[in-house]
Design a protein around this nucleic acid. Sequence first.
RNA 1: GGGCAAGUGGUGGAAUGGCAUACACGAUAGACUUAAAAUCUAUUGACCGUAAGGUUGUGAGGGUUCAACUCCCUCCUUGCCCACCA
Length: 804
Amino acid sequence: MDYNFKEIEKKWQDYWQKEKVFKSSVSDAPKFYCLEMFPYPSGKIHMGHVRNYTIGDVYSRYKWMQGFNVLHPMGFDAFGQPAENAAIKNKTKPDEWTHKCIDWMKIELKKMGFSYDWDREVSTCDSGYYKWNQWIFLKMLEKGLAYKKASDVNWCSSCATTLANEEVIEGGCWRCHNKVELKELEQWYLKITDYKQHLLDDLKLLNDWPQRVIAMQTNWIGKSQGVEIYFRLKSNNQIIPVFTTRVDTIFGATYIVLAPEHPLVKEIIKDNPREKEVLKFIEKVGKETKVVRISSDIKKEGIFTGGYATNPVNNEDVPIWVADYVLMEYGTGAIMAVPTHDQRDFLFAKEHNLPMRIVIQPAAPACPAGRQAQSTDEMTEAYVGEGFQVNSGQFNGLSNQEAKIKIAEWMEKNKYGQIQTHWRLRDWLISRQRYWGTPIPVIYCKKCGAVPVPYHDLPVELPKDAPFTGEGGSPLGKVKEFVEVKCPECGGTGRRETDTMATFFDSSWYFLRFCSPEFNKEPFNVQEAKYWMPVDQYIGGIEHAILHLLYSRFFTKFFKDLGMIDFNEPFKHLLTQGMVLKDGEVMSKSKGNIVDPDSIIDKYGADTLRLFMLFAAPPETELEWDDRGLEGAYKFLNRVLRIKNDLKDKADHGLVKVMHKIIKKVTDDIESFKFNTAIASLMEFVNAIYQSGADERVFTNLIIMLSPIAPHFCEEIWQSLGNNGSIFKASWPKYDPGLLVETTVTMVIQVNGKVRARLEMPTDVSEDKLREMVLKEEKLKPWLQNKPFNNFIVVPRKLINIVV
RNA sequence: GGGCAAGUGGUGGAAUGGCAUACACGAUAGACUUAAAAUCUAUUGACCGUAAGGUUGUGAGGGUUCAACUCCCUCCUUGCCCACCA
């Protein structure tokens, strides 16, 4: 008979909550902080949440049973635009809508049986939380890390707000995919670039992070070392700086190219017969969107300006061109072109018949790629590999790697240029022209300028009934009582900042807040954070590999500089779980292939859902949803339950030995997040029990090992076996290494690498004895046929390979 | 274009130099049943063979090794991230 999961799951969820089984507080015991990325409260949990939180839950419960003091909190990343949209649609207020969603979501999370310490719940939209966003902002302002500047910012007209560089994906808005425009605005920025070197260097400390996340962050920070070279405009000797990482090719620079927006272009073409034509070209390029400009199959277009510049290393005059493939926002907005050693320059030069010169030759014949080109005419593509300098003055004959250093030093000495480092990382734009976010705590005064709100006036509360319509513009600007305030400095007429903070600000430090969620003197209690932090295990989606993780690392470094914490990195170990797929595709509303967790819980129970998700694939790989696999998980639980009705007085010694092996395997597997093989081992254990019958001790160990995975199910059995208290207060079984030692072993006998026999041998058999037994073996005789052995290889306790 | 993963039965996956396909799903057969479901038992990579057994087999090709899914080289395919980045 099937077990009654509905009754059982409800019963134990209530019990865990009432008894506060998973409540944690600072103690002398070793701590373990297990954190899953908190959700945006959309109102419904999806399979991605279920997978993420199940992984964290299993690990937390396992750590509890290993004797750790576990911090396993949950909260809600509750500010953000969807609440505004939903509120307009449903004619309610973002505040009410969000809190309703949080309530629904909590019900669903509780139905999954997750072991959270709900006493630590935080929601970022509560003033008790965002007050500290404002506090952090003011501290950053004090330290010169928050500043306001006017510039062209990424603007999404459909969301009517600005976007950080990190929020622009392929030229579109990360949320609505609308084309992003540039708009000149005065906005607040955080100087994350002050930490760029630390953010890059400390990636080396993160040995327990996935390689690809490290790679993505490295890429995003984008450090590149090179030389800024001073070309000079021939007509008036003005400097045109260009940046290159390949200074070894400087003697092959046969023209330079400016971005169409480059300020010097207008000067160069002034009173020049080509002026009209060039302006026409610039206008044309300006109309193209960035998306079109970067699409790789489009031909690079450019035009000669009529001007010339002088290459400082050889005083050669080179033509100045303007082309669409040079971007004003990277480097200096101007490049030197070396057609022989850069593929893009090569194609451009061929197209426009520009001169080229070879300056690096592969070291033939050592270089396989390298037939040396005798003239540029025979080149069909640029040579971008390593080699030796030619046509490069006093640097001829050097390897290009060596030349890179020597030329850079020589240029710097002669003031032809300057060794420089370029970074891709830009300061973080945090102003948003939205309602549902943290108000930026600044007041503008005609006399005093931008004045920070004094700490004792925090929080700057978000007015509950702003008249927002979704039409854009800062809705807070329409709330008179909010905007019209006195200047805190001179008492004169002031005007409050009406932009709110980007929501990534909220999630950049929530892991610290969880250490002391009620603390009301500072963002977190320094002592408690000292005990709990850093997060030992962080679990979440790969989609946060750049934004959220980079910002959180930045905030952590800031708090360290404030002296509030004493570690460099917030997350010791990071696990990025794979997506949940259905029919090979990511589950999504638009594809209509969503499986609702709630309906699965209703039909099979949370334990079955948890078991299936963990068994179907390792946590980091994609998981293909499979109804039949779910059915299999359900059958397994019933199979376990049946054992209980058939317990023996004493289990066989053989089964006890099997048990100890399984304990070792399951412990090792769970420790390293191999839940799928841990479950496979438990299934093997169950199969073995079906063969020989378990006693209560063996069965209890099975139940304890299964309990992190199927907690309600195991808690029920634990209780029905007459145990007191929660199974999660029980300790994890230990294996007896003595029982793992075998006296005999099955050895595989190979002849020429092919398996020809298997022999049962004592583990301590001597090699001579082995040989004797092998030669006697009838099965092997046809293969050996009295031929002499070339080799007789023995891998102790495993295998023998005879080579004849 | 650059970087990082990955490619194994009908399916999800296991094995990190030493028995390829653990565990499960599915399928087939049997037991139980009036019958079905559930459950239990057995078989299940392909090919040849009545069988014993043999051959072959981890995207393709080469290499190292007594021994390669695993290490090295070349290539193909898929996924993800970045990208006219100078």
